[in-house]
């Protein structure tokens, strides 16, 4: 066991650094900039059953210390997973995680069922997607919808399952306990934060979907607070922290607040070697301080 290793369910990650879904495509382009086998796990962009064209332009807006996006899960659907994505990720030595998204419970179930034929280490289930049957309200904002989804997917495919929720899910601790009670392996906290931009020239919302997802260092304190609260509420399953991480200091804050591992998102867009640098710096930190990462998880909650 090395100093950085950490566990999610029955999986052992060599280190706690995982790319946030959607920030490195499915990894092919990133492999020009870093050895993907350095990562604790590879995590693909969310796949959907059918191809999705995504949202119209504009899809991006830069803010102070971050960006807003309205990509709309553009992907080529299941056939591309079979023909391109799986062959690529299966050539890697690190853990292979796939993110899935859907607009109906049945879509998640079908995807999970199809994924049984592939050797994957974990599936991250993105529950921030609009539920078409409930008028587009995201699953994680409507507890009955989320419960229905969790109950439906837990029985399909014995693979390790991680539920990725929104930082704004109402009350986040209750939702995390529900995820734990349904028997899922881990919870990822969280996805982008919803925001709005008004185009002053047009005097209308800048994005065609009006609401867009905010990411980057601007949301880090929100994500850190959410991890802290969920850990403090006594949850037993591992927490994966995500939101505005761009340095080893950020990673250590999340681990100390209670995260078992972290996802690095928009920082990859600015420097594709960010995760490689963080892993190196984390190793240096643990060596210099002669400690293992596992000892740091949740340590900031100690009472003395």
């Amino acid at each position: 066991m090395n100093q950085l290793s950490t566990n999610i369910g029955s999986l052992t990650l060599a280190n706690p650094i995982v790319p946030a879904s959607g920030t490195i495509g499915y990894g092919l382009e990133l492999s020009e900039w870093m050895d993907l086998n350095e990562l604790g796990a590879i995590l693909t962009k969310s796949i959907t059953l059918l191809p999705k064209k995504g949202n119209p332009q504009p899809r991006l807006f830069e803010i102070e210390l971050g960006l807003m996006n309205s990509i709309g899960l553009e992907n080529q659907g299941w056939p591309q997973f079979v023909s391109e994505i799986y062959p690529f990720i299966s050539s890697l030595k690190t853990l292979k995680w796939v993110s899935i998204a859907g607009s109906a419970v049945s879509e998640y179930v079908e995807l999970l069922s199809k994924l049984q034929d592939f050797q994957l280490d974990a599936v991250e289930i993105n529950v921030s997607c609009p539920n078409v049957k409930k008028g587009g309200v995201p699953f994680c904002f409507h507890i009955p919808s989320l419960k229905e989804l969790l109950k439906a997917v837990k029985k399909v495919n014995p693979v390790t399952k991680i539920i990725k929720i929104s930082l704004e899910s109402p009350p986040i601790t209750d939702i995390c306990h529900m995820i734990e009670d349904e028997g899922f392996s881990a919870v990822c906290i969280g996805n982008t934060v919803r925001g709005l931009v008004i185009d002053l020239e047009k005097q209308k919302p800048y994005f065609s979907n009006q609401i867009a997802g905010m990411s980057g260092p601007a949301i880090k304190p929100i994500a850190l607070r959410a991890v802290w609260e969920v850990y403090q509420s006594g949850i037993k399953i591992p927490i994966i922290g995500c939101g505005g991480i761009r340095s080893v200091k950020d990673v250590l804050e999340f681990i100390l607040a209670g995260a078992t591992c972290v996802e690095v998102g928009s920082a990859n867009l600015i420097d594709p070697t960010t995760m490689s640098t963080i892993i190196r710096d984390l190793m240096k930190y643990c060596e210099q301080n002669q400690l293992t990462l596992q000892k740091l998880i949740g340590l900031a909650h100690r009472k003395e």
Partner: peptide
């Protein structure tokens, strides 16, 4: 870099 699909 081809990561994010922001410029599709």
């Amino acid at each position: 870099l081809g990561f994010c699909k922001g410029c599709s």
